[in-house]
Simulated assay, not measured.
Amino acid sequence: MKRFPEGIQKEKTRTKKALGSLTFGSESSSSSRPSPPLDKEREDSTTRDFLDRILISFQGLNLTIIPSTFEEKYDPKEYDNPGDFAIATARGKAEEVAKRVRDDISNKFVVIGADTCISLENQVFGKPKDHEDAFKMLSLFSDCSHNVVTGVSVLIQEGETWNEISFCETTTVKFGKLVDEEIDAYIATGEPMDKAGGYGIQGLGGTLVESIDGDYYNVMGFPLHRFCCHMAAAIEKVTS
């Protein structure tokens, strides 16, 4: 039986790359964050939910989403574990943005980069290249557990230098047993193609998930709780 009939509209709530880089300026602003263009409203809705949660704790700071142009070319095989690989990629994103804002001496900045990957039996999975690649990934995940790993790099501006706080968060996700017809129907929705591991738990892909052990938001692409714990010290430095 197909859970995903052909023609179902693709949900655009992807966040695994949406939080590639954030920048906090220490100067407060009376204006609220500008609304995104109407054609991006749905795409950015989950990202804004994340940011709203963060801003509850850190009022008085400007927050700007700056997409990083960092080329994600690192080979996960060159790293001891998926966490180190994710942190290195997150650091690359953050450093690229930091280079663009460092000349603005009127503000102190905190730049946050994040990157998420999927790990199963020491193999790292990114976004599927095509339908066949997505099918292979989801077939491997069927009826077993895999890890969702997000690396975060926080760069804190201290005059002309930058200090870093980095960490990774791992959540274990257990898929139910999937049949080929079910996998093909899900891929036909288009949802898997822009997501690490070929699925999104916040969308139709959530119906594939039997259970999770760890931070749900980490599976969406950003470990919100642990991030806020680390940010308390960082914000104190920026505003002091």
Rank of each mutant, 00 (worst) to 15 (best):
T64I: 13
T64A: 10
T64E: 12
I65A: 03
I66P: 00
I66H: 01
I66F: 04
S68Y: 07
F70H: 15
F70V: 11
E71N: 14
E72G: 13
E72W: 12
K73N: 15
K73D: 14
Y74M: 07
Y74I: 08
E78S: 12
E78P: 02
E78M: 09
E78G: 03
Y79I: 06
P82M: 14
F85Q: 14
F85H: 15
F85L: 13
F85K: 12
A86R: 10
A86L: 14
I87S: 02
A88L: 13
A88F: 11
A88Y: 13
A90C: 08
R91C: 05
G92D: 13
K93V: 07
K93Q: 13
E95M: 15
E96Y: 10
E96P: 05
V97M: 01
A98N: 08
A98F: 08
R100E: 15
R100C: 10
R100D: 14
V101I: 14
V101E: 04
V101C: 04
R102H: 11
R102C: 05
D104H: 04
I105R: 09
N107G: 03
N107W: 02
N107P: 02
K108H: 13
K108L: 06
F109I: 07
F109A: 01
F109G: 00
V110T: 12
V111K: 04
G113P: 09
G113I: 11
T116M: 06
T116I: 05
S119D: 10
S119P: 04
L120M: 11
L120K: 10
E121Y: 06
N122E: 11
Q123E: 09
Q123W: 00
F125E: 02
F125M: 07
P128W: 03
K129L: 07
D130N: 15
H131C: 04
E132H: 08
E132W: 00
D133H: 14
A134E: 03
A134P: 03
A134T: 07
F135I: 03
F135R: 06
K136C: 07
K136Q: 08
L138R: 06
S139I: 04
L140W: 06
L140G: 08
F141G: 03
F141S: 05
C144I: 13
S145G: 11
H146P: 09
N147T: 12
V148N: 11
G151M: 14
G151N: 08
S153E: 09
V154C: 14
V154E: 05
L155H: 07
L155V: 11
I156E: 12
I156W: 09
I156N: 09
Q157I: 06
G159D: 10
G159W: 11
E164K: 05
E164Y: 07
F167T: 03
F167H: 00
C168W: 06
E169W: 03
E169I: 01
E169G: 01
T170L: 01
T170K: 08
T171R: 01
T171F: 02
V173K: 00
K174V: 02
F175C: 01
G176W: 00
V179A: 06
E181S: 12
